[in-house]
Computed example of a mutant assay.
Amino acid sequence: MTTATSASIPVAEAADRSEAVTAALATVLDPELDRPITELGFVRSVGIDAGHVEARLRLPTYFCAPNFAWLMVEGARRALAALPWATEVTVVLEDHFASDEINHGVARGQEFAEAFPQLADPDRLEELRRTFLRKGFLAVQERLGRRLTDHGWTARQMAEARLADLPDRLITTLVRRRRTLGLPADGSDPVFTDEHGRAVLPAGMEAHLRRCRTVSVGIAANTEMCEGLLATRYGPDTAGETA
């Protein structure tokens, strides 16, 4: 990702704003791959001119699903608009068959169904988004479960563990995902739950982690394919770069 800042902004302030923009965009996930668009190389460039921020996005193929593309463009716009100093935000999706409709619709604050009335209804798009958030939530548990297992934890210990029992560095992402889904995330809540917030019992822990592993493997396979397609389309140094 390249970042350009206006010469009218003091150097120190320009650096702070650039970091803030990167951090904001890093909160936007590819809904299917469950990774920030900055890590995936989907942010081609950012321009900052006083209070105007422009982000230009790109995707692995010309025919990436328009609903997924919409979620990322809309998410990027919302994240940048939340910056306290941003007075104008422009997000542009490049090289996509539905770029015009997506860019125009998101800029006007439309819903996906308004821009693509033949493709979806609002409830379906929101449910799709939540479906992938739930998958990402299970994948986070798979990584945590593998780490605890490597340190000798038993299924019973994992089932009985509460969030307060683990250091913040291990559960930060897990807690954030739970809150995004509206699930309980207090220190007294169990570490391992299903996607609806129900605690996993000791007898079901191994099956739960196997299910999480299946989801995680699927996400990883899709990520590898998309990174390869992005590198083929835009060059070997684009995919997987960290903004």
Rank of each mutant, 00 (worst) to 15 (best):
Q110I: 01
E101T: 14
L163T: 07
E94N: 11
A159Q: 09
E74H: 13
M72N: 05
V73R: 10
G105A: 15
S99I: 08
A81H: 10
L71K: 06
M158K: 11
G136I: 04
A69C: 12
L174Y: 03
A164Y: 03
F132E: 10
Q141G: 04
M158C: 06
V140M: 02
P122H: 10
V175L: 07
V89N: 01
L133H: 04
V92T: 15
Q141S: 04
L170I: 04
F132S: 00
R130C: 02
V92Q: 12
L71A: 12
R130L: 09
L83H: 05
E127V: 11
T149H: 12
W153D: 04
E114G: 08
V89T: 15
L163E: 04
F97M: 07
G105E: 00
E111I: 06
V92S: 09
L138M: 14
F132H: 14
A164F: 01
E127T: 14
E94I: 01
P117Q: 00
F137R: 00
I102D: 08
R146G: 08
V89C: 07
F137G: 05
T172Q: 04
H151G: 06
I171M: 10
R177M: 08
A76K: 13
G75A: 14
W70I: 04
Q118H: 11
E94S: 12
Q157D: 12
L119N: 13
L148I: 06
I171F: 11
F116M: 11
L170Y: 02
P117D: 01
R77A: 12
R156K: 14
V73Q: 10
H96L: 06
E127P: 06
Q118E: 15
G152S: 06
L125E: 07
V91M: 00
A81G: 15
I102G: 03
T172Y: 03
E142F: 04
T87C: 00
L83A: 05
H104D: 15
G75I: 14
V140K: 04
A164P: 02
E127W: 06
P117R: 01
G145K: 09
E94L: 15
V140N: 01
H96I: 03
L71D: 09
T154H: 08
S99V: 04
H151R: 11
D123K: 15
G145A: 12
I171S: 11
R156M: 07
T131C: 00
P122V: 00
Q157M: 13
E88G: 07
A113Q: 05
T154E: 06
S99G: 00
A79V: 11
V73P: 03
H151A: 05
R176A: 15
L170A: 02
I171T: 15
P167G: 07
G152M: 09
F116T: 13
G105H: 03
G145C: 09
R143D: 14
R162Q: 14
I171R: 15
A155V: 00
R130M: 05
V106W: 06
L166F: 13
R177P: 01
T87R: 14
R130D: 08
D100V: 12
E101K: 03
E101P: 02
Q141M: 10
F68D: 01
W85Y: 14
F132Y: 15
E111Y: 07
R176Q: 09
H96D: 03
Q118M: 11
L170V: 02
P122S: 11
G105Q: 00
L170F: 06
R143W: 05
A107G: 10
G152T: 02
P117V: 07
A69D: 08
L174C: 02
A139Y: 07
